[in-house]
Design a protein around this nucleic acid. Structure first.
Length: 449
RNA sequence: CGGAGUAUAGCGCAGCCUGGUAGCGCACCUGCUUCGGGAGCAGGGGGUCGGGUGUUCGAAUCACCCUACUCCGACCA
């Protein structure tokens, strides 16, 4: 993508409403524009990150055996009356009336609708287990939206719903999601710790919140320091096999949100030097809630003995629009964002230090073409702007690698690669720059491990 | 929902106290000179001063009402 043909409105100054660093950088680097309280447009650069995150989520959900579909944003109130939540949900649910005076609502979540789909079509235990998910916009009329897309009213969420014959099998489904989540966050370059959590209005008795540690996080958390560097299950994990050992390992050390934490238990379980008491951002949550929705909504299947069985369910959410600021909170410096390669909107940027100079233009044009042909997501800063401005923009928007070429280097046949994260620079022959770049980038995509 | 604040050009701000018809920096446009860490000079465009009502000869400025947004707290992917 040529920057002169792109839409990237960057700001030199920080809009005053932005309080936390991720919100400031998302506005400054042209990722989002606020449209109303808790409502944001995703500008092209931000949308690219969001879509990269979405792809990772989809790949890992699919790998675990979940199946993607898409449900509408507007739902009929009648479904929610069946489960009893139309009255129970409160003012967070945005209620709408259509032209025929029918009660509708903008979905804050989809347990009722997915249960309706399930009960319509699935009649036999032979069709289980089943896990259906979608990635759709949700609306929760938060009392107080804040921190940009970290807590917005309209947000993009992946929500998966599992259906099983009994509790034991439902827990196995829970474990598959648990493992998929560990992989999903790791692929995005995040360290997310599963913590015992309250179940809240969704209900149930088994739940984990996946928490990214950050000072600006909204939840207080307590955990064992060794949770931070546990090995991530690999790409060839057998989701048809028994995942209990992995989940056991990940849940054996103490890790709980403040709502669940018991100080005496915490101090007994974790030696003083291993105690982490910190703030965290919740980037996902998993629930097993048995028959809470399947019973009132009559989601039954025939068991092997021909008798009707009420299915056991779980639901599993990932807030995609929250993950973007979570990544930035975890990965930035004084100059701007530092994207992990796997979610970076562009993996590299070719910086033409003297756009308008015929020879430099020709050399940079061909580097850009070569990088694109090598399968690198590459941005090309071909603006006629002083070098300092280009470096500042490249740093701000956080592209992992800068491939820099100007008349001086051109004369010597040398280009420069700057590593955004470390600041390290390497000078190398122009001819080998792209292959070097590719070698740096490929392993960091984390799509093969 | 309780408490506190803000609203003047795309962004950051001054002007308001003491009323006289709007200004600065950045960004944007034109030209020239520059060009390896947010360049210089010259010229230029852009504002119903959040909205309404009132006071006044005259309101960005004073008064009242409304709206939007932000922050702190209680609640949540």
């Amino acid at each position: 993508m040529r920057l002169t043909r792109y839409f990237l409105p960057v700001l030199k100054e920080t809009p005053k409403e932005a309080e936390i660093i991720s919100h400031q950088l998302m506005l400054r680097a042209g990722l989002i524009k606020q449209q109303a309280a808790g409502s944001y447009s995703w500008l092209p650069y931000g949308y690219r990150v969001l879509m990269k995150i979405q792809r990772i989520v989809e790949e890992e959900q699919n790998r675990s055996g979940a199946i993607e579909l898409l449900m509408p944003t507007l739902q009929s109130a009648d479904l929610w009356r069946e489960s009893g939540r139309y009255e129970a949900y409160g003012k967070e649910m945005l209620r709408i009336r259509d032209r025929h005076e029918r009660d509708m609502l903008y979905g804050p979540t989809n347990e009722e609708m997915i249960t309706d789909i399930f009960r319509t079509y699935v009649k036999s235990y032979k069709d289980l287990p089943l896990n259906l998910y979608h990635i759709q916009w949700k609306f929760r009329d938060e009392v107080r939206p804040r921190f940009g897309t970290m807590r917005s009213r309209e947000f993009l969420m992946k929500d998966a719903y599992s259906f099983d014959l009994d509790k034991e099998r439902a827990v196995a489904a829970y474990n598959r999601m648990f493992v998929a989540y560990l992989r999903t966050y790791w692929r995005m370059g995040l360290t997310a710790i599963p913590m015992r959590a309250e179940t809240g209005p969704i209900g149930g008795d088994l739940s984990h919140e996946f928490i990214v540690l950050a000072d600006t996080g909204e939840s207080g958390v307590f955990c064992h320091a060794d949770m931070l560097d546990k090995p991530i299950p690999s790409i060839d994990t057998d989701y048809d096999g028994d995942l209990t050992p992995i989940v056991k390992d990940w849940t054996s050390l103490y890790a709980a949100t403040e709502d669940m934490a018991d100080m005496a238990e915490y101090e007994a379980a974790v030696p003083a030097e291993k105690r982490i008491s910190a703030r965290g951002i919740e980037v996902g949550q998993t629930f097993y809630f048995g028959t809470k929705y399947s019973a009132p909504m009559k989601a039954n299947v025939a068991g092997s003995d021909g008798q009707e069985v009420t299915v056991h369910m779980g639901s599993y959410g990932i807030g995609l629009t929250r993950i973007v600021p979570a990544i930035i909170e975890a990965s930035h410096d004084e100059n701007g964002i530092v994207w992990p390669v796997s979610v970076a909107p562009f993996e590299a940027v070719v910086i033409n230090l003297k756009a308008g100079d015929a020879e430099t233009d020709a050399a940079c044009d061909s580097l850009y073409a070569e990088a694109g042909a090598a399968g690198i997501d590459v941005l090309y800063d071909d603006r006629e702007v002083a070098a300092g401005g280009k470096f500042a923009t490249a740093d701000l928007i956080g592209v992992p690698y800068q491939l820099i070429l100007g008349p001086r280097g051109l004369k010597e046949g040398q280009a420069e690669i700057k590593h955004r994260r470390t600041g390290e620079r390497e000078t190398l022959p122009i001819a080998s720059a792209v292959s070097r770049l590719k070698a740096l980038i490929e392993p960091q995509r984390r799509d093969k491990a």
